[in-house]
Computed example of a mutant assay.
Amino acid sequence: KANIMDFEVQSVIGRGKHAKVVLCKHNKTGRAYAIKVLLKSKKDPNAEILTENSMIESLILRQMAHPFIVTLYSAFQGKERLYLVMEYVSGGELYFHVSQYGRFEESRAHFYAAEIVLALEYLHAKNIVFCDLKLENIMLSRTGHVKLTDFGMARQLDATGRWYIDRNCTLEYMAPEVLLGAPFHFTSDWWSFGIVLFEMISGYHPFYCEDRERICELITTGVVEYPETVSAPARDLMRGLFVRNAEKRLGRAGHAARHHAYFQGVDWDAVLNLRPPPFVPELTNECDIRFFDEQFTSEPVNDWTPVRPSMLMSPTEAESRFTNFSYNAHPLV
């Protein structure tokens, strides 16, 4: 089975509250991978939640086989950390591209939107709610196609078809019903999709404010103002996605977003088969990190990788602490 000593860390490429993502090369094959590293900390007041999230992320990702969702290759652990070995999506986050280069032309946003629609439909067909759709969790592959990443907040719904989320999800993308205490459902993902589409086309968030209480107020009662650059079909699509009554929101059962006029003429089979993209990242090699923020890539990597074999765990010891976390279905070649 794989362990962290099989890899050479190249750079930090992402960071959250309780985890980092590092770019690594496999020692034997030289192939690049993105490894999400989560600290085990019994002292952390959120330790139980973090453990549950990491377990669920591993279980959900191993079910995924879709061109617009990141691939999980392996999951293992050491005495102090959990590791998720995923494909390295070298084109960077959509957030990086919008923040560094400005809003997208609507034709480019339309291209990505169609791919995101298929990814969400795939998840929902498996009874999975993504729960944290945002520009930071949508990345570009080296061939110019989207990949949904970071399934730490995702959940597979139970028989009730609903899930009450914790407050670790990103406030700015939460649907109004969730803020008001209702359970998360598929339609909540479609609200977040509307936010993502608005940001791609306009370059800014429709409800952003420095005051978090004011953000909540804007999400639940505010009026969305659309810039002149937004086309009429895009505006109408977002109006349907921003309906505050989840039972009447576009994306609910029988009212799929893909059937809206904004997507009229889209060949969905061509989308799934990776039609030519409007933008392909220029990369010099497999480990190119030019599309990742320097606030991450400038961080030291030493604190996040063990240098002693004693920090590893035997398979038996690992499974006794985090049952079913380990996964090794894909060969690391």
Rank of each mutant, 00 (worst) to 15 (best):
V117A: 01
L118H: 09
E115S: 08
H97Y: 05
G102L: 08
F96P: 10
L133E: 07
H124G: 00
G102E: 13
K147D: 00
L135Y: 14
I128T: 11
V117E: 00
Y95Q: 12
A119M: 12
A119P: 10
I116N: 08
A114I: 06
V89R: 02
T143G: 02
L120Y: 04
L94S: 08
H110G: 04
S141P: 11
G92D: 05
G144F: 02
H145R: 06
V89Y: 04
E136V: 15
A113N: 07
V146I: 15
H110R: 14
E87D: 14
Y122T: 10
E136I: 14
I138P: 03
Y95E: 12
E93G: 06
Y112A: 07
I128E: 00
F96I: 00
S99C: 04
K147A: 02
L118T: 15
Y88Q: 03
G102Q: 07
N137G: 12
E105V: 09
E115M: 04
Q100A: 13
G144W: 02
E93R: 05
Y101S: 03
H124T: 00
E93K: 05
E87C: 05
Y122P: 11
D132I: 07
E87G: 11
V146K: 03
K126Q: 14
A114H: 11
G144K: 01
A113C: 09
F111G: 09
L123N: 01
Q100N: 13
H145C: 03
R108C: 15
E115D: 01
F111C: 11
V129D: 13
